[in-house]
Design a protein around this nucleic acid. Structure first.
Length: 280
DNA sequence: AACGGGTGCAACCGCATATAC
DNA sequence: AGTATATGCGGTTGCACCCGT
């Protein structure tokens, strides 16, 4: 025998939460903290299943949630992160404090998708729509001169339900060399189920950290390496100059530029340095 | 004022993985 | 070791609201 059931499904409410239910949940979690969703409903006097309580708390009641419209910066970041991570909403949410995966997912489906389509970009592939229609042209498309397209096409499009580490390891496709080489390509071996290990190359780490500090002061377009194109909303000369010097390193195909590319996305390598991650 | 279509978002559903028994 | 539930995640749905006719 396994565990006992978490709740009696016959006696649970469904649908919209009432103010009273919200209050009960909030006061219970304030007193006892999050977790143990299984026993929470009964202890809190709620006729809901634990799963529903968890969802309500995480997506709506948590005090640290940032309500209101998404800012342009958040907008950009979501697009860039999605180009890297695909529909990994929870992962994307970790880079947007105060936003939940559900909120980002909804925002993506209702706003961002449409916005990208209007710009002629396929939201699924982050490539121009006419290019997406002809997938065998991928080698050609990588030669595009448009830096926006370059960056957007940089990340992998994750296949649904694919467990990168496991599947690729089984196929014998992954080794450290492969991972390093993939940085200069399309990051096909980006493994999201990794564990963190000490920095793999300190010098590189320092450089990217310094860069991150500098770029905190730049506009979004410049942070993403677009300072010398139309997308730059920053009229700061210093910003433009810095971008000029950095974009050259970005265009090279070595690993330094690739990791720098991640930093353009605000993915400070202290948090998301794939080079320092190991396969499970 | 009534109606219908479009939109946004909270909540549900089903699945994969982790974990307790 | 095997089984069943808990948890977490992404996809989908349903409803309230808005707006144009």
């Amino acid at each position: 025998m396994g565990r006992s059931p978490c709740c009696e499904k016959d006696h649970t409410n469904k649908g919209a939460w009432t103010k009273e239910e919200d209050d009960k949940l909030i006061s219970y979690i304030k007193a006892h903290g999050e977790g143990c969703w299984r026993s929470l409903p009964r202890s809190a006097g709620l006729q809901r299943c634990g799963k529903s309580c968890r969802l309500r708390w995480i997506n709506y009641l948590r005090p640290d949630l940032k309500r209101g419209n998404f800012t342009l910066d958040e907008d950009d970041l979501i697009i860039k992160l999605h180009s890297l991570l695909g529909n990994k909403w929870s992962l994307i949410a970790t880079r947007l404090p105060g936003r939940t995966d559900n909120e980002i997912k909804n925002y993506w489906n209702t706003h961002v998708k449409r916005k990208l389509l209007r710009k002629g970009i396929d939201p699924a592939t982050h490539r121009p729509i006419n290019e997406t229609k002809n997938p065998q042209d991928s080698s050609e498309s990588s030669k595009t001169e448009d830096p926006l397209v370059k960056i957007l096409s940089f990340g992998p499009q994750l296949e649904k339900k694919e467990t990168f580490g496991e599947e690729r390891a089984q196929k014998g496709l992954i080794c450290k060399k492969d991972r390093v080489e993939s940085y200069s390509g399309r990051c096909l071996d980006l493994n999201l189920e990794l564990r963190i290990s000490p920095p793999w190359q300190d010098k590189l780490q320092d450089e990217t950290n310094m860069r991150f500090q500098r770029e905190k002061h730049l506009c979004t377009a410049c942070r993403f390496g677009l300072g010398n194109v139309k997308e730059c909303s920053c009229d700061n000369v210093k910003c433009q100059t810095e971008e000029d010097s950095s974009s050259s390193s970005y265009s090279s195909s070595d690993i330094t530029s690739s990791i720098a590319a991640y930093d353009f996305l605000g993915l400070n390598t202290r948090v998301l340095d794939f080079s320092s991650l190991e396969m499970q």
